Simulated assay, not measured.
Amino acid sequence: MNPISILIDKIHSENLWDKEIQLKRNEYLKVKGTIDTNIYLVESGSLRIFVVDEYEEHTIRFGYKNNLIASLDSFLNEKPSELYIQALKKTNLKVISKENYTNFIASSAENRKLWLSILESFVLQQMERERDILTSSPMERYTRVLKRSPQLFQEIPNKHIASYLRMTPETLSRIKKS
């Protein structure tokens, strides 16, 4: 069982979720310039995390069933973030506040080890993604993501996957056909 599944099971078993929320399609959970220190469990639906520059949106992460998502920078430093989090379809989330989460993590050495393992995994994923964007061809990026997260292609619209892969929707379409 992976560390995130173990963490979710422990939070469930200790009944630590603060509340549940539902987002409509295209509704924002978080917008640029706001602070959000919650962690969310996606029970159904899907979301994207993205930033906007003066020209376009850049998708940096997705969340779908059984994923934990957060505005991690805001969660860690409790400052406003440049991130947007938007529902791509009707989405149900469970919410745990930073205070409840950090109390839970601090409550045992096993929980601290689990959190550290999750953070380490996240850092390694981000490094792999950065390396891919800088050094891999569009086909290589597509193949790697398809192998790592095949569910992504059932849950997420192609235009957002293309943004995540740093290619145009047309390039993604050509790659999928080949």
Rank of each mutant, 00 (worst) to 15 (best):
P80E: 10
E56Q: 14
D18A: 14
E56I: 14
E99I: 08
N77C: 07
S97Q: 04
E78Y: 04
K94H: 10
G63D: 00
T34P: 04
E82W: 05
G45S: 05
N111C: 06
T91S: 09
V31M: 06
Q86R: 05
E43I: 08
T34W: 06
I35D: 01
K65H: 06
Y101C: 08
R61W: 05
L119M: 14
E120V: 12
S44K: 15
E27M: 08
I60T: 05
K113N: 11
T91E: 03
A109T: 04
Y84L: 00
K32P: 03
K94W: 01
V52F: 07
I21N: 09
N66D: 13
G33D: 06
L41D: 01
S46D: 06
L93N: 07
N66V: 03
W17G: 08
E56L: 14
E82V: 13
A106K: 06
S44W: 04
E120G: 07
Q86H: 02
Y40N: 01
G45K: 04
L114H: 05
N67P: 10
Y28P: 12
R61A: 14
I85S: 08
E110R: 13
Y101Q: 02
K24S: 14
K94T: 00
E27R: 15
E43C: 15
S108V: 06
N77H: 10
K30N: 13
S107F: 10
A70D: 00
D36L: 03
K19Q: 13
T37K: 03
L119I: 07
S108Q: 13
K19D: 04
W115K: 14
L47P: 10
N38V: 09
N66S: 13
S117Q: 12
E43V: 05
Y40I: 07
L114P: 01
L88A: 00
E120T: 15
Y101E: 01
T91K: 04
N77R: 10
K65C: 01
Q22K: 11
D18Y: 08
S117L: 14
S46Y: 02
K90R: 11
G63S: 01
E57R: 15
L68T: 01
